[in-house]
Design a binder for these strands. Structure first.
Lengths: 304, 304
DNA sequence: CATGGGGAATAACTTTCTATTATTTGTCTT
DNA sequence: AAGACAAATAATAGAAAGTTATTCCCCATG
């Protein structure tokens, strides 16, 4: 089987007309070219050049081969270009699935920024429950998941990406907006939005209440912190939300206050062990980790 | 620039699943493959396989590269084949691919006749679907294609070669063999063989039926008119076939009748614009066109 | 006519790539 | 625990492609 390199040399000699010219064009020495031509002729079994008066003139066969070789070169360049794109992560597929608090505001922004320099990445962003995240990852429909509650599944790899806190979001004109710090138990005294006792978030909060011998009382139950946040923004009341839900949106319509006691949450990146994780997916995960750990970034929520 | 050899090894490992399998297939030792993979990964800068439990699983990137590499391989083979032909002193090459109705009976006869006066032409005849015809032509594996349904591809040149009709083929002792003319809708009343509604032929026939507010009913579905014809010859029933499928065979075992309404079909010759079409290929195309337009030729089907 | 210059070929190595044998490591099976 | 199978590692051999230095050939020119 003839090698690409051999065809390259052949074509160079045909194009440039002399071995020395071809050698210069290929940045090799003249004897290298000369030997190669001789070698190819041995290989194919018929002369590729007529040697006359110390000059080389290509035979019709050589011209024919050179013509056909062009397609081969372009295919090789094409593969090379694709590898280059894969290396830069500018090509590929990235299917992300995340829980609502991350998926509604933070992730769209992150993805927008990430893909600005990678125009040829095929994207999808899905929002779903932890169970759906697990299903999408183990079935291979998603490459990368993000979740606050860490999914427990042996086929999944979970790694902590960033630390956050539960904070209190309230309308700017709300009485609590002026308090320095808000005790979690005080929420029982205002109309507020909270989460079902069956959800991980609800359980986390319930635990604090039960430690103090009281019970949580709220006027509206929602499932996602992002939903709660929308209601707060609409002036319906106050709510506890994780700080990730607040990231990535410029909100003049909600004030944010720290709570006592502090409740910390962690954003987890999740991948499947059943399939190799693509290069773009790993790049995006790293991109997220860095962006979230950078305190200068505008995604960051400052809690006044 | 990545080498063809490296891609060969990569693809072999992906295809065979193991380095040892790939090594065997490539007739080299297992460490050669192992080292090569490592080397390529260093070269491209990202992992191509996930190593887990002593096994290799290709990453999406590796699969992507392998996919693209196929074109490179076929181009290399093409150049190699051309060198081979130049070496062997063959005057020309003629690689034909056609759909079954043409490729099974008509083409073999045509090629036999054509090459009678051209003993030094290297031949190949392939039968395939329209998609395969397209693939063979744009990859350069075939020089000339023949198809009833005109392939739609910007890199291909299609030209009409001959006009034909759909006709009814029936066993000589069949009741319809004595009818002067057969109405298409009458076929519903006899056991007949027909084509899937997904095929161009099936759609063409369905259209007539739906224009008359009825539906086609047949007891046996086949893909190719040549298959249908064999079944008719075996006495299984009647079938609509294109007149090209009948050409080139002396069939005492089938009677042919025209149908109402007439359904005309066209035989198309197809060449690729990506490569210059060889002189023999053009000659053969012209030979076909003339042979098919000559009413005196025995290929012609007389419809009684 | 000898002479020098451009181009191709030859000789003798070196480097790089590819492949080999032998051995080790890890995992799963029995 | 033993065996089987897959992959990795080490040390090295062989082929492919390239190097420098030199020679050969043609011919244009003073």
């Amino acid at each position: 089987m003839i090698r690409v390199r051999q065809l390259e040399v052949l074509c160079a000699v045909i194009d440039l007309g002399t071995t020395s010219g071809a050698a210069e064009a290929l940045s090799v020495s003249q004897p290298a070219v000369s030997n190669m031509i001789r070698h190819i002729e041995d290989l194919v079994g018929f002369p590729l050049f007529k040697r006359e008066k110390g000059r080389l003139t290509p035979t019709p066969e050589a011209l024919h081969i050179a013509q056909e070789a062009q397609h081969l070169f372009s295919q090789q360049k094409r593969v090379d270009r694709i590898i280059d794109q894969l290396r830069g992560g500018t090509v590929g597929q990235l299917n992300v699935i995340a829980t609502p608090s991350i998926g509604y505001a933070l992730l769209p922004r992150m993805i927008a920024e990430f893909t600005r320099s990678r125009p040829r990445v095929q994207l999808s962003l899905e929002v779903g429950s932890v169970d759906e995240i697990i299903q999408h990852l183990i079935s291979g429909r998603a490459d990368l998941g993000f979740s606050i509650t860490s999914p427990r599944h042996s086929a999944l790899s979970v790694r902590p990406m960033a630390a956050g806190d539960m904070v209190c979001a309230c309308p700017p004109d709300h009485e609590l907006a002026h308090a320095r710090s808000i005790n979690l138990l005080d929420l029982n005294h205002v109309r507020h939005i909270s989460y079902g006792s069956g959800t991980p978030l609800g359980q986390m909060i319930d635990e604090v209440y039960s430690r103090h011998g009281t019970e949580r009382r709220y006027f509206c139950e929602v499932r996602h912190t992002s939903t709660a946040l929308e209601m707060v923004a609409a002036g319906a009341g106050v709510a506890l939300v994780d700080s990730f839900a607040l990231m990535g949106r410029a909100r003049q319509d909600v004030s944010v206050r720290a709570i006592q006691p502090a409740l910390s949450v962690t954003l987890h990146g999740v991948t499947s062990n059943l399939y190799p994780t693509s290069h773009v997916a790993l790049q995006f995960q790293e991109f997220m980790r860095e962006a979230l750990s950078d305190p200068e970034l505008p995604h960051r929520v400052e809690i006044t």
